[in-house]
């Protein structure tokens, strides 16, 4: 087993959150400045860079908001309800989460149940001090205690190494980039019709034209770029969460068999929206991209192929046995 240093991973995640925030806000600023130049060019500028200020405010607000209340919004979007201890299965879930909290030396996260028959689970929050863990009803019904432990350990690892913080911020920022580029394209469409009566202002040299073309291209590609970033950020950490989860339970086979069961229930998880996909233990969209390998599939999947994850976990179990 490759030795994993959790503390390095934590530091890397905290640094990465900052880098992502700066990168996304820079991208938003670029979209905003482009819009202002376009406004100026078409003679409709009110004199102050409204679009830049607007884009930056929206980006800054959504980043701040994602850290303040992003977890609650995500939970609400999936209709998750707080755990009900009178139900024996949820009682067992509560116990399993407490066991994993003890094993990892973390405070126990808040637990939610999503009323959906498809097995899936996700964690959200800003780190060990503030985290929530949600599982679907289908997961509780289809997994045994050990498998449930495996899934919970995987999610708790996401919490412990601050994956949840990165992912929650990414979810909010991707959302605001989508919103802005949507507005921008609409404005372009709408503004395009009036371009005939614009007078040629001094600033439109070839340099300006290149910048403008670049801006239009990035406006069109923005949603794609934003989602590619979210997916790339999410994929590699699934392997890591599998590994550190197995390190907590010392039982990689239970997680492997849980993943097999989750995989076998191929139906999409209806209550989990696209924006939360990258948080889940397995892609809730039930798409086939996550099952195949290759550069193209790799680019669009939020999760690595599940067969590969299972194989890696089994290998881990074999190494423990043969030690």
């Amino acid at each position: 087993m490759t030795p994993l240093n959790l503390y390095d991973q934590q530091r890397r995640n905290l640094r990465r959150t900052t880098m992502l925030l700066v990168g996304f806000i820079g991208f938003l600023a670029f979209l905003g400045i482009g819009a202002d130049v376009f406004l100026y060019w078409s003679g409709a500028s009110p004199g102050i860079p409204v679009a830049t200020i607007g884009a930056l405010c929206l980006g800054g607000f959504s980043a701040w908001w994602s850290l303040k209340g992003g977890d609650k919004a995500i939970l609400e979007s999936t209709h998750a309800t707080p755990i009900d201890l009178s139900d024996p299965k949820q009682r067992a879930l509560d116990n399993v989460v407490e066991e994993m909290a003890i094993a990892s030396g973390m405070p126990k996260p808040a637990i939610y149940v999503v009323p959906d028959p498809d097995p899936n689970a996700f964690a959200t929050g800003t780190g060990p001090e503030r985290s929530s863990l949600a599982v679907t009803r289908g997961l509780l019904d289809s997994l045994n205690r050990e498998e449930l432990q495996g899934v919970v350990s995987h999610e708790m690892s996401h919490v412990k190494n601050y994956d949840v913080r990165v992912m929650t911020v990414v979810a909010a920022l991707v959302g605001s980039v989508l919103l802005i580029s949507d507005w921008g394209r609409r404005g372009l469409w709408w503004g395009g019709g009036r371009r005939d009566d614009r007078e040629n202002r001094g600033g439109s040299g070839p340099m300006m034209l290149i910048l403008f073309v670049l801006w239009v291209i990035s406006l069109i590609l923005a949603p794609l770029i934003a989602q590619l970033v979210a997916m790339a950020v999410s994929r590699e950490r699934e392997y890591l969460a599998d590994a550190s989860g197995a390190e907590l339970t010392r039982n990689p086979l239970a997680l492997a068999s849980a993943l097999e069961k989750i995989d076998a229930a191929a139906a999409p998880t209806a209550s989990i929206k696209q924006g939360v996909a990258h948080l889940c233990i397995e892609d809730p969209r039930g798409r086939s991209v996550n099952q195949s390998e290759g550069a193209f599939a790799n680019l669009f999947a939020t999760h690595p192929p599940i067969a590969k994850r299972i194989a890696l976990l089994k290998e881990m179990a074999y190494q423990t046995l043969s030690k």
Partner: peptide, 27 residues
């Protein structure tokens, strides 16, 4: 149901003892 509940609590406590020892050993 009562016995099942108690069994679950005891199973969980057994696990917690195990994990608490594991965490202690790590530290």
């Amino acid at each position: 149901e009562n016995v099942r509940g108690l069994m679950e609590e005891l199973t969980s406590t057994e696990n917690k003892i195990g994990f608490a020892r594991q965490f202690y050993n790590d530290l």
